[in-house]
């Protein structure tokens, strides 16, 4: 039985991970690189004139947070956008960085694949048949569980974004994933009337409690960059999860018919 799960998770996860990497390079990566240029001071929001700051009430001016930001000529030191203390610089060339992105996208989507087929297994133990069509629905649900619901409290972070303490955000992220996943499963498969209010409570709970937030808003990049980045992260994730669900459902059904 585990062999069937292994095949479904691996085949679907690798395929989805490669699609995720492709979409990342096509639609998302340029905004990470742009965000890093603001983070390192290579680009400065309002840095050229500074005259617009007052008009737009940007109270916590970015320049105070970063000495480099006070000097508009500093950019050249990191003009390639790769001189970034959170990973890029340590990894050397852009090729290495991109190769690692492909590898980790595949690892990540294989891990999502295992969680997805674990769900398939439990559903089948209760007599539900899963095929590619159901797989797409499960995939969209997976997107809601692992991306959309956490993003309601913790929007995808552009490098240089201000946020609360990391461990608190990670705890909230996991709790939200568990609550949303359980809530959606109850909503879809619950047989007793109590499942409905319980599902609603679980889906709402993380957002009623609220995600840990940073103190104030003084991110270095323009809001436009952060907004388009967040939108594209969610959009690409939804497409990839639908693919993951379809692939996993198809392999799951084929392997099931064979055994």
């Amino acid at each position: 039985m585990f062999q069937r799960m292994l095949a479904s998770a691996l085949i679907a996860g690798i395929a989805a991970g490669l699609i995720a990497a492709l979409l990342h390079f096509a639609f998302v990566q340029k905004f990470i690189l742009l965000g890093e240029q603001y983070e390192t001071g290579a680009l400065i929001h309002f840095g050229g004139s500074g005259t617009k700051e007052g008009e737009h009430s940007h109270e916590a001016a970015p320049a105070t947070a970063d000495p480099a930001a006070e000097d508009p000529k500093a950019p050249e030191t990191a003009a390639d956008g790769h001189d970034h203390d959170h990973g890029a610089s340590a990894q050397g060339s852009a090729a290495t960085r991109n190769a690692l992105t492909v590898v980790f996208m595949v690892i990540l989507y294989v891990s999502y694949g295992f969680l997805l087929v674990a769900g398939f297994g439990i559903a089948e133990a209760f007599g539900r048949k899963i095929g590619p069509t159901e797989g797409i629905l499960w995939g969209i649900a997976g997107f809601a569980v692992f991306h959309l619901s956490p993003a309601l409290g913790l929007a995808p972070e552009l490098p240089g974004t201000i946020a609360a303490k990391l461990d608190l955000r990670q705890i909230w992220w996991w709790a939200t994933v568990v609550c949303t996943g359980t809530g959606l499963a109850l909503l879809a498969y619950g047989r007793h009337w109590i499942a409905l209010p319980l599902a609603a409570a679980l889906l709402a709970l993380p957002h009623v409690i609220g995600a840990p937030q940073g103190e104030g808003y003084f991110g270095l990049a323009p809001t436009e960059v952060g907004a388009i980045f967040a939108a594209r992260v969610l959009g690409t994730a939804m497409v990839v999860w639908a693919c993951l669900g379809w692939f996993a459902g198809a392999v799951w059904a084929r392997e099931g018919a064979r055994s």
Partner: peptide, 25 residues
């Protein structure tokens, strides 16, 4: 892949963590 804070793992998975909405740093 998404949450461990070992420096090596964090650096290697950096872009993926940002691009999939994980709390990164």
């Amino acid at each position: 892949a998404g949450h461990a804070q070992s420096a090596t793992l964090h650096d290697a998975a950096h872009d993926v963590r940002h691009a999939t909405g994980f709390p990164c740093h």
